[in-house]
Amino acid sequence: MKILITGATGMVGKNLIEHPVIAQNEILKPTRSEMDLSSKEQVETYLDTHRPDFVIHAAGRVGGIQANIKNPVAFLVDNVDINRNLIGACYKLGIKKMINLGTSCMYPRNAPNPLSEGMVLQGELEPTNEGYAIAKIMAQRLCHYIMKEDQSFHFKTMIPCNLYGRYDHFDPQNSHMIPAVIRKIHEALVNGCAEVEIWGSGEARREFMYAGDLADCVSKGLVNFETLPGVMNVGLGVDYSVNEYYQAVAEVVGYKGKFIHDLSKPVGMKQKLVSTKLAESWGWRSKVSLHSGIEKTLSYYLNLGK
């Protein structure tokens, strides 16, 4: 197949491209100069010119809790524009197969865990990343409406839990938790710092999956697209406390110092664990353990710029 991967220069996109099953196909991976997703006209022109058989939509403006709090307008508007332009152009041009990647931020903040696919739009969103979540919900619903109006279209959505891995960003101001913790603890080790700060009590629970696992699930979706559910979570099925993530990174890095907690800092949702029952019944489970994923990500971080 000829497969278009949006967001091909990002962490998820790069993990998708290097997956051996996906790599067997002809991959379109346009840069922003080749297809600016914020431009409806550019998106339509690129798709009309190249006519992919399949689209994996992994593009979006992403960032951690600090970036989301600081830039809510951009996280809402930029992602709405990207999703509307890409999905709308595929609909207009008759490109009928897509895997759209959502986010577990789409789920209500107070919904009971584990979060099942039917809980989307069933309650208030987490305020710290509400704009991003709204844009992702819009994309999933647009895919649903298109399939409802014309059953020849198959625009399916995978909802991954939090991700980390090779090709991640490690800037503490904009990165997600695990890469930020890897950098923070590694720098503490190198600089001989006796303490590392954790935001909040560290008791909030999170589910972080290695990005290569998501690529593996998407690859199975390509091969078994007819049986792939219309909306499906992709996750570990287990979660860990923030304190446990810090401890796991410290063990991999070799840091022996202690942790202190800043209770004045925001922590987001108390728990965010997706249900993996549907994915498991479809025949997929994650494979990479937490320590193994951290080791792979640390190795990538230590080799940046080499």
Results as ranks from 00 to 15, higher is better:
G13M: 05
N15T: 10
N15A: 07
I17E: 00
E18A: 00
P20V: 01
P20R: 00
K29T: 15
R32V: 08
E34R: 01
K40P: 02
Y46N: 09
H50K: 10
R61Y: 14
R61K: 14
Q66C: 05
I69A: 09
P72S: 04
K96C: 06
K97A: 08
I99Y: 12
L101P: 09
P108T: 13
P112M: 06
L115A: 08
S116G: 07
E117D: 03
G118A: 08
M119L: 09
L125R: 05
E126L: 02
N129C: 09
N129Y: 11
G131E: 07
I137K: 04
I137C: 05
Q140A: 10
L142S: 07
C143P: 04
I146E: 07
P160N: 09
N162Y: 11
D171P: 07
D171N: 11
I178T: 10
I178F: 14
P179M: 09
R183H: 12
K184Q: 14
I185E: 01
C193Q: 12
A194F: 02
G200N: 02
S201I: 14
R205L: 07
D213E: 15
S219V: 08
G221S: 04
L222C: 06
V223P: 14
L228W: 10
G230L: 13
V231A: 09
M232E: 10
V238M: 05
V238S: 12
N243P: 06
Y245F: 12
V252S: 01
V252D: 00
G257T: 00
D262S: 06
P266S: 07
W282Q: 06
G283S: 12
G283F: 14
H291R: 08
G293D: 11
G293S: 06
E295M: 10
L298K: 04
G305E: 14
